[in-house]
Design a protein around this nucleic acid. Sequence first.
DNA 1: TAGGTTTCTGACTACCAGGCGAAAACCTCG
DNA 2: CGAGGTTTTCGCCTGGTAGTCAGAAACCTA
Lengths: 239, 239
Amino acid sequence: MGSVWSSAERPAYPHQALAVVLQVRDRRLHAMLWQRPNEPFAGAWALPGGPLLAEETLGASVARQLSAKVEVEVLGHLEQLETRSDPGRDPRGRTVATAYLGLIPSHLDPALPDDTAWHPVDGLPATAFDHGSIVRSALHRLRSKLSYTNVGFALAPPEFTVAELREVYVAALGHDVTATNLQRVLLRRGVLEPTGEQAPPGRSGGRPAALYRFASPELEVTDPFAVFRPPAQRQGDAG
Amino acid sequence: MGSVWSSAERPAYPHQALAVVLQVRDRRLHAMLWQRPNEPFAGAWALPGGPLLAEETLGASVARQLSAKVEVEVLGHLEQLETRSDPGRDPRGRTVATAYLGLIPSHLDPALPDDTAWHPVDGLPATAFDHGSIVRSALHRLRSKLSYTNVGFALAPPEFTVAELREVYVAALGHDVTATNLQRVLLRRGVLEPTGEQAPPGRSGGRPAALYRFASPELEVTDPFAVFRPPAQRQGDAG
DNA sequence: TAGGTTTCTGACTACCAGGCGAAAACCTCG
DNA sequence: CGAGGTTTTCGCCTGGTAGTCAGAAACCTA
């Protein structure tokens, strides 16, 4: 890197920004994919994305590419995931691709182009390139972060009942979660707070639910657990 | 991406693979840096790395670049960290860089080239490009992973006493850790196991310490905590 | 007003991390 | 050979947090 490289020694590669956009729809977690009309992988489903342009960062690029599919304003969260560099990942020629993870709150239903659709993440159709494996990486990242951060805010509407939030978590995590425990854990951590309002009484009766919101619309990590923490930081140390 | 791009529409960029190589040396966590002889940033310290070649993956590239500094065999762990794409990150022209995190066990002392040296991570010298911020990212990643994975195996010798392991953790985490708690936590999780042997009695007396090893030389994540886990996975549920 | 449905709250259990002190096992010195 | 010092190990206690369950609360419909 310190040396001066001739152009022969500094090969350059087209670089793509890809996005795994996830949303809970109809109680299931979906990924946004578009269907390729041409070879290679004609008919297969691919992640939205495209070339990194000369003057933009990868973050700006992925936002720009996504704006061709949905209004970027619907994205509740966007973070870099990983970079794929297998020389054979695109049969047309070498490209490097950096994937991002994007999340859309469940109450939105943005219009999509004709070639683009939502697919449940369990049971994806045939995918192009290495995009199937990238979606699995994104899934893993999301499920981990749901446990020790407040990313949930990016999947849930601005205000919600505990029952609604539970549906989001069940769909995203892929397994059952009890409403009682979800509420208590998130309240104790301080990531959830009551709005003071009540949801309109249900169609089928029952006690009206209280409304909650996420305390911070920023991503915060609640330390995984208190293991190996400096002694002074603990709380209940009177003796 | 589905369309065919002309070369004007598919700009290409030199791509670097960088490595943040960390090791605990003399009870402090150090990063491996080399000093740039030329502009830009002449005299400043930079991460080892270099250009991604035509037929290699980023992982292979970073290993190849590192082999110019140390024998790659000393690396106990290597994982992708993040990709930097700021168009202005290199004043000579745009490059994209993918950083990796590498770890070397504390009992090794590989020979380094003359321009390369270890620097304590708290108190780095002037760094080139965005490399200082990349080191901070690596630090954050390492410290998180020490809490909920067994990456410690990549920083510690193959066999060690609890006191020795404690020194590694104290250096890497940057704060104190009690030997008692460290031993109990790691044993309970099953990431540590006794070898059955004893360390040679100390120079200054004292009870000889038992030797331990990491149970698995593979990276394993011990679930951060049991939050939002499926009900059936719990153990002591008799009623 | 009675019965059904949904939500909320509190109590109980299990598990895990942190801290402390005593006991164990070794050394050196007198 | 015993006393004192040093280091490690082990057990006990505390506090915090997650999971489960049952009952109370609050609404609807009939």
